[in-house]
Design a protein around this nucleic acid. Sequence first.
RNA 1: CGGGGUGUAGCGCAGCCUGGUUAGCGCGCGUGCCUUGGGAGCACGAGGUCGCCAGUUCGAAUCUGGCCACCCCGACCA
Length: 570
Amino acid sequence: MKMSKLHVPTLKEDPADAEVISHKLMLRAGMIRKLTAGIYSYLPLGYRSLRKVEQIVREEMDASEAQEVFLPTVQPSELWKESGRWDYYGTELLRFRDRHDRECCLGPTHEEVITDLVRRDVRSYRDLPLNLYQIQTKFRDEIRPRFGLMRGREFTMKDGYSFDATEEGAETTYMIMRDAYERIFRRCSLQFRAVEADSGPIGGSFSHEFMVLANTGEDTVVSCDRCDYAANLEKAEIRPCEPCNESIGTVPEKVSTQSVRTIEEVSQFLGITPSNLIKTLILKTDKGPVAVLIRGDHELNDVKVKNYLAVTEIELADEKLIHEVTGGPLGFSGPVGLTGVTILADHSIRGMQSAVVGANEKDFHLINVSPLSGFKVDGYGDFRSAAAGDPCPRCDGKLLMSRGIEVGHIFKLGTKYSESMNATFLDPDGKETFMIMGCYGIGVSRTVAAAIEQNHDEDGIIFPPPLAPFSVIITTVGAKNEEIDATAENIYQILWKNGYDTLLDDRNERPGVKFKDADLIGIPVRLTIGKKALAEGKVELRSRKTKQTILVEINNVLDAVTDMISNWDA
RNA sequence: CGGGGUGUAGCGCAGCCUGGUUAGCGCGCGUGCCUUGGGAGCACGAGGUCGCCAGUUCGAAUCUGGCCACCCCGACCA
C-alpha cells in the first residue's frame, strides 16, 4: 500500500474525549472514529489490526478442531424466553419490535441461537463432541461505555460453544480451549495471565479469564508471589483463619461515639485499629435483607455473598431499609440483638476476640463484644475481597494485586442451556441425555486496544508484529530523487512478494512528518531510504521498539527485516 | 440510573462571569513560492445554524428555562 493513497487521518493533538492511552492513540493514529457513544467505525489501519487478531484466533480455533460458523445478529425473543434470559438479562439486552410487532433483540451473546441450532440436527452421541465458533459484532447496551474499544457497546467478539456427551469430554474440551487461548494470546505478544474467575450470570461450574496486564485495566487480578495461583478479585479465595476459641472474660459495654460513624472515625475515636472493628453491612437481595459482618479493615465481596445465598440481585441497603432492619441509623449497625434477618459473617470474624460493633442506636457502639458469645451468626463463609499481602489459598506465598484487561473468558457451562432449551442426544444405551456445554469468548476488538495499552511510548503505538496493520514501512527522505524512489519501489515489491505487509511512504512530505506518522501508527520496522546511505548501496533499518537503527546492504534487506521481526520479543 | 462536567470551523481551545458593529487563536485544509533526515517558512484563501428549542431584551455565543448529545466517577461485562 502506498501511503499517498491510504486513508490514515492522523491527529497531532489528543482528542478531548479520550481518556486512556489506547483510545487516544487509536484516534490519533487514524485507526478508529467514534460514531456515537460506545460505537466506532474502523478505518483501514484499525480494521487491518482487527483482522490480524481475528486471523490468529481463527487459526488456533481451527487447529483445535473447532469449526467456524456465522450466526444471526437479530434474534427472536422466543429463544430468550425459552432459556429464561429474556427476563434475566436486563437493559443491556437491546430489544425492539419488527414491523409485525414481534419482539426481537440484538445478540449480546449466542448461547440461545447456537443451542437451538445444535438441538435441531444433533441427535446422537456419535455426532459429539461438537465445537462451533464465530467471529462477529455483538451488541451490549452497556450502562456506561468508555475507554474507546475497551468497553464499547458494539464490539467484535469471537464466541465459541462446545457440546459434549460426557463430563470427561466436556472437561477435555475445556482444557483444549484453555490451551488454544494460551497460544492465541501468546501469538499476540501479550503479557497475560489466565485467572480463576466467577462464572457470572452466564452460569456454570468453572471458568477462567484471560487478563492482559495493564495499569489501565478495569479488573483487579490477584496473584501469588510464590505459586501460579491467579484469580479475579471477585473470585480470589481467602483461606479461613483459625477460629479464636477462648472467650476472654469481657462484658460488652455500650459507649457513646457521638457523631463518628465511619470505620476510620470510630477507630480513631476509640484509639484502636480498624481490624478491631466489625462492620455490619445490610444488603438488599431478591430474597430479602441480610446482614453481613466483615472485619473493619476488610472489603465486602458482594459476588461471594451472592453466590453463597444463590440470589440474583444484591446491593447495599439504603438508610430506610437499614432502619427497618436494625432500628438504628446508617453507620451504627451491629449484630448484637439483631433479629429477623439472616446474619452472615466472614471467616475472619471468628478470629476476633473483643470487637467493636455498632449498637443499632444513634451515637452508640458496643465494645468488648465476642463473636463466640456476643451474637448469633447464621453462617460463616468467605465474604470478603482479597487484599494485597493476604496469604495465598494454595501455598505459603502472599497475594499481589495488579490490574488487568479481560480479553478472554472460558466457561464450562454444564447443562444450563441444554436443559432449559432441551438440547438432548441419545447416548450409547439409547437414553436421552442433555448435552454438556462450554462457552469460550474473546474480545477481539478489545484485544487490539489491550495490545496498545501494553505497547506504546511517548511517540505512539509500538505494535507487536503479529498485530501490526503493516509490518514494514518504507520511508523515502529528501527531495524528489529518482534513484531513491526506484530503490524504494524495488524493496517494496520484494517485501510484498515475501509476505510482508508493507507500506511505502511516497508522500511529498518533509522527513519529520513521515517519521512522526510512522512512529504514531506503530509500524514495527521502518526502512529509511535517503541519499547518503544509498550512495553506499545501503538503507537504514529501524526498530520501532528499540529505536535502534542499522545500515544494511540493499541486497540484504529481506533477511534483515526477517531477522528483526522474528526476534521482536527477544 | 445517581453524582460531576462539557458542547463555539475537521481537531485542540479562548470569548460567556460584566449582553453591543465583521466571533477569535493554534493545528489541519486549499493555492502559490520556497523547503526536504524528526510534525519547516512566507503570502493569499476557504471553512461557523456559537448543540437544539423557547423566553428575557432595542440587541443573545454571552442572561433564563426546557430538551439533546458527549465525557468523567459508581453498579455490569469480552
